[in-house]
C-alpha cells in the first residue's frame, strides 16, 4: 500500500487524535491501519493506529431515515455531501523525528485540519521492526487493545515479503509473551489469532 491522504484532523491530544473524512472507501480507512499526521510544524510525524470509526447522524439523516419511499439518488447525495464528517479515532503509538522512529508518545500532537495520511508498506515495516509500541496499545484505556494488537500485527506481517513473515510472527509472539506472561489465557487467545 502506498501513502495517501485520507482525512483532516478534527481534534487531538498527546495520546491520540480524531480525524474526519467523507464516506469511506472500501479499503480505507480501516480498523488497525497505521496512519501518520504532521506535528511540530512538519518536524515530526505522529504515527497512530486507527481504533474506531464512527459515523454520526445529523438532522437530514434523521428526517430521511423516517421518509417513506426514499429514492436512491437522495441516499447517494446525502452520503456524498454529509453535513457531519465521519470521525476516525487514532491511538498514538510513536513518532518519527529526523528519520528515527520512537515508540513513545509524541512531544506535540498534530494541529487541526492537518492532513492525515496512511503509512506506506515500507514505513509500516520500519516502524514495526521493534515491538515496543505494543505496550502503548495494552495501556490504552479506550481502545480495544487485543483486537487492535491483532489487526496491527497482521498489517505489519502483510507489509513484509512472504519469506520474512514467519520469522516476524514468531518475534512478535515472543514479545507478546513477555508482555503478557502473567495472563496466560489472554496470551493464548492472542497467539491463536496471530498464528499463520
Amino acid at each position: 500500500m502506498n501513502e495517501m491522504n485520507i482525512g483532516r484532523l478534527l481534534r487531538s491530544a498527546t495520546t491520540g487524535y480524531v480525524f474526519g473524512c467523507s464516506v469511506p472507501e472500501p479499503e480505507v480507512p480501516h480498523f488497525g491501519m497505521f496512519v501518520k499526521a504532521p506535528a511540530q510544524r512538519g518536524q515530526s510525524e505522529v504515527v497512530g493506529l486507527i481504533y474506531n470509526i464512527a459515523i454520526e447522524d445529523d438532522l437530514f439523516v434523521r428526517q430521511m431515515a423516517a421518509t417513506p419511499n426514499l429514492s436512491e439518488t437522495y441516499i447517494q447525495d446525502q452520503r456524498a455531501n454529509r453535513q457531519v464528517p465521519i470521525e476516525v479515532s487514532v491511538l498514538c503509538v510513536g513518532y518519527r523525528n529526523g528519520g528515527q522512529y520512537a515508540h513513545a508518545l509524541p512531544p506535540q500532537p498534530p494541529i487541526t485540519l492537518d492532513w492525515i495520511n496512511t503509512c506506506a508498506d515500507a514505513e509500516v515495516r520500519d516502524f514495526t521492526q521493534r515491538h515496543d509500541y505494543l505496550q502503548l496499545i495494552l495501556d490504552a484505556p479506550d481502545a480495544p487493545a487485543d483486537e487492535l494488537i491483532v489487526a496491527a500485527l497482521q498489517r505489519a506481517v502483510e507489509s513484509r515479503p512472504p519469506e520474512d513473515r514467519e520469522r516476524y510472527r514468531r518475534e512478535a509472539g515472543r514479545e507478546l509473551a513477555k508482555l503478557l506472561s502473567r495472563d496466560l489465557p489472554r496470551l493464548q487467545r492472542l497467539l491463536k489469532r496471530l498464528a499463520p
Binding site: 528515527q100 506506506a120 515500507a122 520500519d126 521492526q129
Partner: peptide, 13 residues
C-alpha cells in the same frame, strides 16, 4: 517517501 527511500534508514533493524 517511497519504500526504497525508507528502507535505507534501516531504523530498528
Amino acid at each position: 517517501m517511497t519504500d526504497s527511500e525508507l528502507d535505507k534508514f534501516g531504523i530498528f533493524k
